[in-house]
């Protein structure tokens, strides 16, 4: 499911990369037979690591603030989503983890469930549809948040 992206702002105070410095370090590492070298200069820390093939340069701005994150994207499908035991949404709607706002969730990580047990609700147009466990097992992952929009085929949870 694709969500609207907000554009990340440019990172303030990002140091201009001193390529001359990096090249010098790369050359040093190679000539002196070192595996890596790291120097710190003001805001900038540079580490050059020599691989078997070519030097790999990693520039790590020390004092610069971390770049602002893009608006949190509710779930890229996690690698676990294609695990056997993944329960996918049969419809478009809004997923709810609990029967009502005040109740506890149907299941949690570690919950043991039997086939046919209610594990989630997906609501569309004021109609709540029960998602039932397709087989016995233990809930090992919950892949959606309470109140999250879901699409057809979206992985909801994993019951192993």
């Amino acid at each position: 499911m694709k969500h609207p992206e907000s554009k990340p702002e440019s990172v303030p105070g990002e140091a201009a990369i001193d390529t001359g410095l990096v090249e010098t370090l790369g050359e040093l590492v190679t000539r002196l037979g070192l595996s890596e070298i790291e120097i710190e200069r003001g805001d900038l820390r540079v580490r050059v690591v020599r691989q078997l093939s070519a030097p790999v340069q990693a520039v790590v701005p020390v004092a610069a603030p971390p770049p602002p994150q893009a608006a949190p994207r509710p779930q890229e499908p996690a690698p676990v989503s294609e695990a056997p035991g993944t329960v996918k949404s049969p419809m478009v709607g809004t997923a709810y983890l609990r029967p009502s706002p005040e109740s506890s969730p149907f299941v949690e990580i570690g919950s043991r469930v039997k086939a046919g047990e209610k594990v989630l609700l997906v609501e569309a147009m004021k109609t709540f549809n029960e998602i039932l466990a397709p087989h016995d097992g233990t809930v090992t992952a919950i892949l959606v948040e309470d109140g999250q929009p879901v699409e057809y085929g979206q992985p909801l949870l994993v019951i192993e």
Binding site: M1, K2, H3, P4, M91, V92, G93, A124, M125, P149, E151, Y152, G153, Q154
Partner: peptide
């Protein structure tokens, strides 16, 4: 800008699926 998967390939389950479109 956004996308929603609404069903499996057959048109009646997807592009003709009124509840899925409304949802």
């Amino acid at each position: 800008d956004e996308s929603v998967c609404i069903g499996p390939p057959p048109a009646r389950s997807s592009y003709l699926n009124i509840p899925a479109l409304l949802a």
